[in-house]
Design a protein around this nucleic acid. Structure first.
Lengths: 340, 340
DNA sequence: TAATTAAACAAAACCAGTTTAGCAAAATGA
DNA sequence: TCATTTTGCTAAACTGGTTTTGTTTAATTA
């Protein structure tokens, strides 16, 4: 168990002061008029004895931890796991480490987690906020903490965010079905008032209105277990026999939807066309392949962390709110084919 | 921007010393013979003014950061994302935060990441090590850092680990196919010498030997892109027409395998039975549903973090190496049915 | 040549805690 | 009654850095 060497040890060994060493390490040698001879000597000593400054001590004195708090709905979810992967990569390239946590979309848990991150002095936050966290987010902003909301946002709060253009993406997907002569298009969504869900619904509604089609919406309780959802959807489809296309607001709703449709013995495509919002690796491998609105995850993640880094690199007064809206990709696959 | 109050501020305000406050906060009041009157007064002040000790300062002086370093192959992978979710939960319950990172199974990257975590003074590690990291892991152990290896381990190193009983699970799955009269069972695996992959191969080989069946193994290069894998598998199946069952060593190999099998126009089940190692939510939703060897992720994760916590809670000399081997669940679904 | 400036570094304060050693007053004991 | 112990707390050292202020000596400048 070799104990690590500290800046004080070097100071003693070379018989110079800690400050001198600190200046040299931080590249302030010339500025502070340290002779190149001494600079050389110190750097060599460091090199030979493998010194690394303690991040803890640095953090304590500078107030910066070089830690980013990543609060997402659920790390085990495909979409967020992908997010985490991309964010991690860029954060590490920039010398940041990441604390992650899953909010489970629970306001109380989220409140606690924000407090925990705050206690740990994270330098900045990337958050997919549950509904109703306005006060907490605002208080982070008031403290001067860089915050980037992700996936959803609060219209009433002046914070940076990175989101998908849910409205347009949803409109386009719905319009596609309508343009292809599907006449009874159902929208299966979550019973949630989060901004992204609301936008998806609005996009669907607009497309229906433009085509003079009926709005058929079925809401699934948030956090339902899949089996329950399947049951509810079977019931729904039985009661709405005229429905010839189903548009699911999330990919896991589509999973349950497909099960329900299969249970009813309907054919995809043929009896029923389907589209899922939020692509999944499986949609491309399932038979039939499933048409989806794809979120460009790597771009969303990249934008989020880049916006946060740009905030972190600027002094408080220069930080401008950045609102990024990323367009979705519409991937047409077999599940929306029009059979002759 | 309200600046936080420090222990020094309280000391000044109450005109007592910092040490007294520190003792009280840490429950050493009686031990240090602080009067209950003063204790009460301090606690009340803290309560009223919302004081929280700085974790940074605590970490600096105690040497404990209450941070766990979680190094997994890839956070975006379903299995590891689930792991991360469960580990997070238990860690947070115990006051720990988590740094995560993805090794991508790259030894150089992993070496760097270990160094980064070490520099950050994480208290303990949970690691799914790439092949050839023996030296680095050993050096962590030599330093006295609690380490739990996960998913795979090094036979030559005396470290704690939590792994699946890959050999037995693989043996059982292979035996199931043989018992059900499949006669030419191929094993599709990765070109990797990691312990878990080796164990899976051995399990398969033993079952084949016991049934006097031919060993047919196809290795896919690690990190292949799925399209490449599909091509390779199509070629393999064309050249091995006698194969009537395929057993995939990972779930994503099975994804590519199903695509390949579909491309060839084979029926599952019927022409071909398949089993995948490592269950996936999709296997239960695909038509046909796919038989799989399921890793009890929540148990694996729970054991890992619990073993680590038990190490963290003990002084160095009391820490015993803990080797946990968890049995798998074999989930029989439609893809291995024997059609009449 | 004396005053000023620059060079090169050191000392000390600071971040916010923990912990060891110590000290005065009160209580106990012989 | 005086020495010893206990009580109740404080001072100071320590964790390992950063940053502001000081100090000495040498080189310029007037």
């Amino acid at each position: 168990m070799i104990k690590k060497i500290s800046i004080g040890d070097i100071a003693t060994a070379l018989n110079i002061s800690k400050s001198t060493i600190s200046f040299i390490i931080n590249g302030k040698g010339k500025e502070k008029r340290i002779s190149s001879a001494l600079t050389e000597k110190v750097l060599q000593y460091i090199d030979e004895n493998g010194y690394k400054p303690s991040r803890l001590a640095q953090s304590l004195s500078t107030g910066k931890t070089m830690i980013i708090g990543l609060m997402i709905e659920k790390i085990s979810d495909y979409f967020f796991a992908q997010m985490a992967y991309h964010i991690e990569e860029i954060a590490y390239q920039n010398g940041y480490k990441i604390f992650y946590c899953s909010t489970d979309n629970d306001p109380d848990k989220t409140r606690e987690l924000i407090q925990l991150f705050r206690d740990r002095n994270v330098d900045g936050y990337i958050i997919t906020p549950p509904a109703g966290m306005e006060k907490e987010i605002q208080s982070l902003l008031d403290e001067g903490s860089p915050v980037v909301l992700f996936d959803r946002y609060y219209p009433d709060i002046e914070s940076s965010y990175v989101i998908l253009d849910n409205f347009k993406a949803s409109y386009n997907a719905s319009k596609y079905l309508a343009d292809n002569a599907f006449a009874h298009i159902a929208f299966i969504t979550l019973d949630s008032n989060q901004s992204q869900m609301e936008d998806r619904k609005q996009g669907y509604a607009k497309a229906m209105a433009e085509h003079g089609l009926e709005v058929i919406i079925e809401k699934i309780p948030y956090g339902n277990d899949p089996a329950q959802t399947v049951k509810q959807l079977v019931r729904f489809l039985r009661q709405n026999k005229r429905v010839d296309a189903v548009y699911f607001a999330t990919n896991y709703l589509a999973f349950s939807g497909v099960k329900a449709i299969n249970q009813l013995g309907y054919k995809i495509p043929g009896t029923m066309a389907i589209i899922a919002f939020d692509d999944h690796q499986v949609f491309d491998f399932y038979e039939p392949t499933i048409t989806a609105v794809a979120q460009p995850i790597s771009e969303l993640a990249g934008q989020s962390i880049r916006v946060l880094l740009s905030l972190l690199n600027k002094p408080l007064e220069e930080r401008a709110v950045q609102k990024v809206i990323v367009p979705a990709h519409f991937i047409i696959r077999d599940s929306t084919a029009r059979l002759l």
